[in-house]
Simulated assay, not measured.
Amino acid sequence: MSPLRLAADYLLYRARAFKLHGVHSPFIFDLYHNVLRHTGYFPAYTHVETLRLKLLQDNRQLKITDLGAGSKSLPSKQRKVKDIARTSAKPLKYGQLLFRLVNHFQPKTIFDLGTSLGITTSYLGEARKQAAIYTFEGCPNIAGVARENFRQLGLHHICLVEGNLDETLEQQLQQVQQLDFAFFDGNHRYAPTMRYFELCLARHHEQSVFVLDDIYWSGEMKRAWKEIKAHPQVMQTVDLFFIGIVFFRTTQPKEHFTLHF
């Protein structure tokens, strides 16, 4: 998507977005006040951001195997670690939001669909050290760096599943009874996004939380987000522009929220 189209979408989002006083659902009000807009400090923030700074200075060249939609800013098959860290990792604001979501909901089984260098995965791991965390990466060389990073942070409860997500996701889902939390960042195209969502949906439950990255990244992602919101098993969604959050709470009415973040 062109920068102008993305900017136009963002202006439309800002025009629709509510702040705290405009939210009437008690569940969403609490989530917005205590999680989304939380401004307190957690030591894990420093752990992961120190790792990010180290990676932003890492000049190692990696040969890239890209099985997803690819990088708009890094089309080369040879990339420096520091460039991947600069363009592929979620910014601090959103990595720390994912930390707070996991810290708040305390999921036992977490799937991270798109490891990259492991910065976002590390935020998930720091938030819930008692969880079983499965993160999926298609490029062996990037996966090797991510494993180094998990070891450095002592996140031994993270299992990195290497290979094509089209194959590994379904295989790993068969090994778990239920899926409490999932972050979808593995392929920014319509068909794979919907396929991964439907696969994970087979293991969801009433309290599951799914988070989708870059819901306005392209026309295909906008289409996927629209269809996910309309899915009969999806009950509540929160649009934060760069990410979308999905809930399945049947005890509450089906509602969609666009919140200022």
Rank of each mutant, 00 (worst) to 15 (best):
I64P: 03
P43G: 09
A132Y: 02
N59A: 11
T115E: 02
L101K: 04
L165Y: 08
S122Y: 03
Y94M: 05
S116L: 04
Q96E: 15
L117S: 06
L55Y: 10
F150C: 05
F150I: 02
A131Y: 07
G154T: 03
V145Y: 09
A131M: 11
G154H: 10
A89M: 09
L55W: 09
K93V: 05
L62A: 11
T46M: 09
V48G: 01
L51Q: 05
T65S: 09
R128G: 00
L53K: 15
L153I: 14
L165Q: 11
Q61H: 12
V102Y: 01
R151W: 04
I133A: 01
K72P: 02
F42P: 00
L101S: 05
F136S: 04
A69L: 08
T50M: 11
A89N: 10
I133F: 01
K82E: 13
Y45T: 12
D58R: 13
I119D: 05
A143I: 13
A69W: 06
Q130P: 01
Y123N: 08
L98T: 01
I84T: 10
Y45R: 15
P140H: 14
T120N: 07
Y41I: 08
V102S: 02
T115M: 02
H104F: 14
P43V: 02
S73F: 12
A44Y: 00
L55F: 10
L117Y: 07
G70E: 06
Y123R: 09
R100M: 07
C139W: 05
F42M: 10
N141T: 09
Q96K: 15
E162K: 14
E162M: 11
E137I: 09
Q130C: 09
K63G: 06
L117M: 11
G70V: 15
P43S: 08
I133H: 00
S76N: 12
F150N: 00
G40Y: 02
Y94D: 08
K82Y: 13
S71M: 12
A85S: 13
I142N: 08
C139K: 03
F136D: 00
P91M: 06
G40L: 07
E49W: 04
G144V: 08
K82T: 06
N103Q: 14
R100T: 01
D58S: 04
V81N: 04
I119L: 13
D83M: 07
K108W: 00
L55V: 12
L67V: 03
L155P: 02
P75E: 10
Y94G: 02
I158D: 02
L113Q: 02
T120I: 05
A89V: 14
K54M: 08
Q130G: 12
P107L: 14
L53R: 15
H47G: 06
N141C: 07
L153A: 08
E148G: 03
V102N: 00
G95T: 04
L160K: 05
V161I: 15
Y134E: 04
D112H: 11
I84A: 04
A69G: 09
